[in-house]
Design a protein around this nucleic acid. Structure first.
Lengths: 164, 164
DNA sequence: ATTGGTATGTTATAATATAACAAAAAGAGG
DNA sequence: CCTCTTTTTGTTATATTATAACATACCAAT
């Protein structure tokens, strides 16, 4: 899965700035810092992993970031649709789907249990089905969570010897 | 959603006994107790809620159940496919889908954010699609999580006055 | 400048889950 | 029945994830 990662980060950041302007919400330095940490690779990180990196980045500062700092930034980024949570492992990753500025989409995450990489897809067709199914018993949908755990192509290759 | 709840519990318990015999796994009194707590209503309960109820049920006993007791029972019941976890709220509910003795199916949970009720459906068609999608980029699926959060028909009715 | 909302810093603690090890109980084989 | 092995349970402590509560600082619009 080779892609131009620098460009992909740049695009995401530009999008993030645009969305926050459109929505009149403030993408403050701290929030931006957390987003950048998550953009650094296509992996989901736990809140305390993010905290560690945040601390590493702010050694010069007078203050040491604390858990609420991370959770607040994550709340903001989740709200903006810039980050998604992997509910099945309490971790967070930057949204990489190209999307319009209204922003929030339903993510379908494919999480590699070996390397932690997250491949993200949109799930429009499946979500439509789900809404239809919900309607049959009068259920009003607020949020859809779709996660798929397994092994990415890369890790399968690396572990071929297990099956030889 | 009226149904014969006693019968539904009875069926589930019979099924549980059968499955554990088929798989040569032990549905011990403790595990059964946890299953019964979850069968008591069609709600997802947190591990510590289960613990409380377990304690209430065992006041006479010399020992007071501790968290590992609950988590061990849950691990067993999850493994057997008798219980599912709601990943988006760290809670657990008894599987109510009629199923063959090979047991494990992919659950699609519709969770009411007002009353906590869980409506469970099978998700075969969606899961098939998901596998196909995964195959397109060489992803090997181990586990699928599909959760739908919102309001059940009943709670919508009760809250109609909000919208008047 | 004052004020009202938003964001941050800080401390403490709640809620969820597991590690580690000892003791007891249950099945397997003689 | 007895012994060995495996599985289950009891117990204590602690790890991990997340939030409450309150004080302070910042920012933007009058």
């Amino acid at each position: 899965m080779s892609h131009n990662h620098k460009k992909c980060i740049k695009t995401s950041l530009e999008f993030a700035h645009k969305v926050s302007q459109d929505k009149a919400m403030r993408l403050t330095p701290q929030r931006l810092q957390v987003l950048k940490i998550l953009l650094d690779d296509h992996k989901a990180l736990g809140a305390y992993e993010i905290l560690e990196r945040l601390r590493d980045m702010n050694l010069a500062s007078q203050t040491t970031p604390q858990p609420p700092t991370v959770y607040r930034a994550l709340d903001f980024l989740l709200e903006m649709g810039l980050v998604h949570k992997v509910e099945s492992q309490n971790s967070y990753y930057a949204c990489m789907i190209e999307r319009s500025a209204d922003g929030v989409h339903i993510a379908q995450a494919f999480i590699c249990e070996s390397c932690g990489a997250v491949e993200e897809k949109t799930a429009e067709a499946s979500v439509k089905k789900l809404y239809e199914k919900a309607a049959t018993f009068g259920f009003e949908v607020n949020q859809v969570i779709m996660e798929c755990r397994g092994f990415c192509a890369n890790c399968q290759k690396q572990n071929e010897f297990f099956y030889e």
